[in-house]
Design a protein around this nucleic acid. Structure first.
Lengths: 130, 130
DNA sequence: TTTAGTGCAAAAACTTTGCAATTTA
DNA sequence: TAAATTGCAAAGTTTTTGCACTAAA
C-alpha cells in the first residue's frame, strides 16, 4: 500500500505522522490530479493551512507532485510514470496507462542526471471537441 | 519565424496585433518556461494587466502553454514537443532535445483523441544534487 | 517532556475586473 | 470611425506567516 510507504518516509525523515497528514494522504491517493479544492473537500476536518503545509511537506519528500496543466495547481502522487491527455478545447484532463516513453534511448542527458520518474502530457483535441 | 506564425494567428482569429502583444510574444520566445516575473522583466513597457491578458489570449489561441512544474506558473511556446528534466533536489528545470516518446505506439487512447503535441517531464536528481 | 505540528487571524502575493482613455484596422 | 485594447485602481483569490495551543514520539 502506498500509504505505508508514505508514512514510513515521513517518519524516516524525522517528521511526525499525524491524523491530519494521514487524511491529506488518503485524499490525494483517492484520485490523481486533484485541485486544492477537491483535496480539501476530502479531508474537511483539516485546516486549510495544514493542507497547504502538508502538501509542501509531501512534495519535499518526493511523495507528491504539484503541477499545473493550464487551470490552477493540481496535485498527484509521484508515481514512477504517469500519462495525461489534455484537451486544448475544453481543458479536460484524463489519464492513460500505456507508456509510450522509452528512456533507455536517452543518452545520459544533462550529464549524469539520475532518472526516477516521468510524466507525459499529450495535448490535442478530445472527441467531444472535434 | 515563430513570431509571424503567431501574429498571423492573432489576426486570423479577429484580434489586433499591438505593440504590447508583440513585446510579450518576443519575451516568451526568448526562453522556455519563464515565470511571470521573468516575462514582465523582458517587456517593461507593458502593464502587468496586459501581460496577463495577453498570455490568456495566447494560451487560448494555442500558441502558449501555461504549466507549473512545482514552483509557480511558467509559460512556454506551445511547440510540437518539448522535454524537461526536473531535479527533485534543487527544483532546476532544463530542457533536452532528443525525443524518447513514440506516440505511434499509442492505440487511439481516449477514443478518437487527436494528438497535436506533447510535453515530457523527467523527474530525478541532477548531477549537482547527487 | 520535548520538539514538531495545528489552526486561527492577519499579511502578503497573485490574478481578475470595472471603466475611461487610447489605438488598430 | 467603430470595435478592440490598454492601464490604472480596486476587488477577488490564493498562499504564506506569526503565534499561542496541542499532540506525537
Amino acid at each position: 500500500m502506498a500509504l505505508e510507504r508514505a508514512t514510513g518516509k515521513i517518519r524516516d525523515c524525522g517528521h511526525k505522522v499525524t491524523p491530519q497528514r494521514l487524511a491529506v494522504l488518503r485524499a490525494i491517493a483517492a484520485e490523481q490530479h486533484q485541485s486544492m479544492e477537491e483535496i480539501r473537500g476530502r479531508c474537511p476536518g483539516v485546516g486549510m493551512v495544514t493542507v497547504y503545509r502538508t502538501l509542501d511537506l509531501l512534495a519535499e519528500l518526493g511523495l507528491v507532485r504539484r503541477l499545473d496543466l493550464g487551470d490552477g495547481a493540481r496535485y498527484e502522487l509521484a508515481e514512477d510514470h504517469h500519462h495525461h491527455l489534455i484537451c486544448e478545447g475544453c481543458g479536460s484532463v484524463t489519464e492513460f496507462e500505456q507508456c509510450p516513453v522509452d528512456l533507455r534511448s536517452l543518452p545520459r542527458v544533462g550529464g549524469g542526471f539520475e532518472v526516477r520518474a516521468h510524466s507525459l502530457e499529450v495535448y490535442g483535441t478530445c472527441s467531444d471537441c472535434r
